[in-house]
Amino acid sequence: MTHGLHYTVNCSILLTDLPLLERPAAARSAGFDAVEFWWPFPEAVPSDAEVEGFVKAIEDAGVRLTGLNLAAGDMPAGDRGLVSWPGREKELRDNVDVVVEIGKRLGCRTFNALYGNRIDGVAPERQDEIAVANLAHAAHAVGTFGGQIVVEPVSGIEAYPLKTAADAVAVLDRVGADNVRLLADFYHLAVNGDDVPAVIAAHTGRVGHVQIADAPGRGAPGTGDLPLADWLGAIEAAGYAGLVGLEYKAAADPFAWLRG
């Protein structure tokens, strides 16, 4: 791909033939120096030993942790975040404390706070109030060491309310913190029918992180029909200088597209 942006490997969706803690070293062996993860523990507040094991795996691999999701609930069951989930505020905030610890130790500065699904019987306005308060809390916590919270439109889950960049930007505006920014995942935006070039033109100044996969299928670049190289070139030209997360499902050779 012809652009000057650098990649970070999402080790929660790539290299899944290996145990989780072996994936950072595999990413390094594949030529990358940066990795990102969804929340890598089964609980929002893991044991000290689990945290130590994760930190050691990153350090021993010689890579940088450039992105980490906040706890998102049971993702295989369809959960997509705790940020707007009534009754789980303490769990979310206890999770933020762990995120802060990991971020400080590993130099990670970008944290993805998945918004959470709409819940039957709860007014959307109530969920949005909870989300704004939780995002403001998380932004303050990571802001103490230069971190940012990113908010992501997501596809594939009807109950997840943030589907377009405009949906997420409206949340950013409600929170009103400079370090709460848009996660522009070109795959999710495209699948949801958003106009990605228009998003780039309108919102690059609000973008805190970019992720890519091709569509249909959420495979590696080149397996679908999205003009990912064009979009990455456009967002770079518009002033984005951050990393690009490789967040796709891959076949046996996940990085062949970079060599071909």
Rank of each mutant, 00 (worst) to 15 (best):
A123I: 06
A123T: 09
A123R: 14
P124D: 10
P124K: 04
E125P: 09
E125T: 09
R126I: 13
Q127I: 03
Q127T: 04
D128F: 09
E129R: 12
E129D: 15
I130R: 01
A131W: 04
A131H: 00
V132K: 02
V132Y: 03
V132A: 08
V132D: 08
N134C: 11
L135H: 05
A136S: 15
H137K: 09
H140C: 12
H140K: 15
H140E: 15
H140W: 13
A141M: 14
A141K: 13
A141I: 06
A141T: 08
V142K: 03
V142A: 08
F145W: 14
G146F: 00
Q148R: 14
E152A: 09
E152V: 01
P153L: 12
V154M: 10
S155D: 12
S155C: 14
S155A: 15
G156P: 03
G156E: 12
I157S: 08
E158M: 13
E158C: 11
E158H: 14
E158S: 14
A159L: 13
A159K: 15
Y160W: 09
Y160M: 06
P161S: 10
P161F: 08
L162C: 06
L162R: 08
K163Y: 11
K163R: 13
K163N: 07
K163G: 02
T164P: 00
T164D: 10
D167K: 06
A168D: 00
A170I: 03
V171S: 02
V171Y: 02
L172E: 04
L172R: 04
R174A: 15
G176T: 11
A177P: 07
A177K: 09
D178G: 10
D178A: 15
V180P: 05
V180K: 05
R181Y: 07
R181D: 01
L182P: 00
L183W: 03
L183A: 02
A184K: 01
A184N: 00
A184Q: 06
D185V: 01
F186K: 04
F186L: 15
Y187S: 00
H188F: 06
L189G: 03
L189D: 00
L189Q: 05
A190M: 06
V191K: 11
V191A: 12
N192D: 10
N192V: 04
D194S: 12
D195K: 11
D195Q: 11
V196Q: 00
V196H: 01
V199L: 14
V199H: 05
I200A: 07
I200Y: 00
A201F: 12
A201C: 12
A201Y: 11
A201E: 15
A201S: 15
A202P: 09
A202T: 14
A202G: 13
H203Y: 15
H203C: 10
T204L: 07
T204Q: 02
G205N: 11
G205V: 08
G205D: 10
G205M: 10
G208K: 05
V210A: 08
